[in-house]
Design a protein around this nucleic acid. Structure first.
Lengths: 220, 220
DNA sequence: GTCTATACCCTGATAGAC
DNA sequence: GTCTATCAGGGTATAGAC
């Protein structure tokens, strides 16, 4: 089994991704294969995806895929590592925005996050990460690290810089803040909530912000 | 294709389940098949599950399954309908608990919900509903209806009966309350957050309750 | 390096005995 | 109703020509 692709050769042990490491630039054929693979895997999931279909969509022969990525699992891993990190890393890296009044900053964070609601690629990616979380736990962990852990850290830092918010456990509050947004997207989009129990983003943002910045000065 | 099983014969159009309709009691063989099917489907997902394996686990021949449920899709649908409704319906049906002081009632609701965190069957069910939400949207909708819609309704009714909470949009608050719990379970258990960024249930419950019951009397 | 052709396995589904 | 035996098709992966 060949394993000399730039994507795999320097790969750290599973579940121990280095988020700061720059993504290796693959050769042109590999890029072409990965683009096709992304389309198919994200559309129909791991088990349903056949290598024939990936080859057809990517416009290469099956053997070419096998020589570059070893087997189906190798292809999927290479794809998911690239796509997870590339999609989510930029999202929580712009620290500079977190300055200003809580009501305004938090509203902006929430609204930025909720743009994902109408991003089909993000929705497919989230679904496949959950779907394959048992077979490929490393990508579930990678997601929690890149999105949840980073987001929580950034929010925590902001909360701690604003003692007037009066939080006794800023980590938990950050988790609640992000979690309510994640599950709102999940329920409305992936679980078709918008078809049976629609609820506008704006209402979530308004109520969430008002809960967070509410005056707690006269409480224990 | 036979379709005379009690589970299917009276089935309403897909995506239009009647939550009040009592579940038909299947014959003994059907029960036996469904138990085996549940084990396999919840463990490894729809696409990976083979009818051979279900037959082996259930202790019947493949043909017996086919004569009862028609095909793989029919088996899965019968299973999911039963298991989704049976697992979730009782959860939000005990209205009587929702009486008393907000801080106490809401804490109890949250704690009850979070018992699901250590319920492997619930976790598998949630994962497969999300995994198959594209192929079988009807069960995603069934889930949103039985869990999210019902839960939101109950909470809304409680909130509206307690104007001192000073909510301008109790529906949105209810969504945030339940959503933060759902996503906490998702992140910690299904996405292995507890291995990399553990956070105790108690902290979530404390902060969530304190956010909700916080004094908003001197705000717009 | 990339292609065509193919080996070999396992799948969902069926036929027919009892 | 339930079983054993079997079919046709499509899956991953490989061999060998160029």
């Amino acid at each position: 089994m060949l394993n000399a692709s730039p994507l795999n050769s320097l790969e750290p042990p599973l579940g121990n991704f280095d988020l700061e490491r720059p993504i290796a630039i693959p050769h042109q054929k590999q890029e072409q294969i990965l683009r096709g693979a992304m389309q198919v895997f994200l559309e129909i999931g791991y088990a349903e995806t056949s290598m024939d279909r990936v080859a057809a969509v990517a416009g290469v022969s099956k053997q070419t895929i096998y020589s570059h990525f070893g087997d189906k699992e190798g292809l999927f891993k290479a794809l998911m590592e690239r796509v997870t990190i590339n999609r989510f890393r930029p999202f929580f890296c712009n620290d500079e925005k977190l300055n200003g009044e809580p009501a305004i900053v938090l509203r902006q964070v929430a609204e930025t996050f909720l743009t994902l609601k109408s991003d089909p690629e993000y929705l497919s990616l989230l679904r496949i990460i959950i779907s394959e979380s048992k077979r490929f736990p490393e990508f579930a962990k990678l997601y929690t690290q890149t999105v949840i852990e980073r987001g929580r850290e950034l929010l925590c830092r902001y909360f701690d810089a604003h003692p007037e918010l009066n939080f006794t456990d800023s980590e938990a509050i950050a988790q609640i803040f992000l979690g309510s947004l994640v599950s709102y997207v999940l329920a409305q989009e992936i679980l078709y909530g918008k078809e049976s129990i629609p609820l506008e983003s704006e209402r979530i943002v308004n109520s969430l912000v008002s809960l967070i910045v509410s005056d707690r000065s006269n409480q224990n």
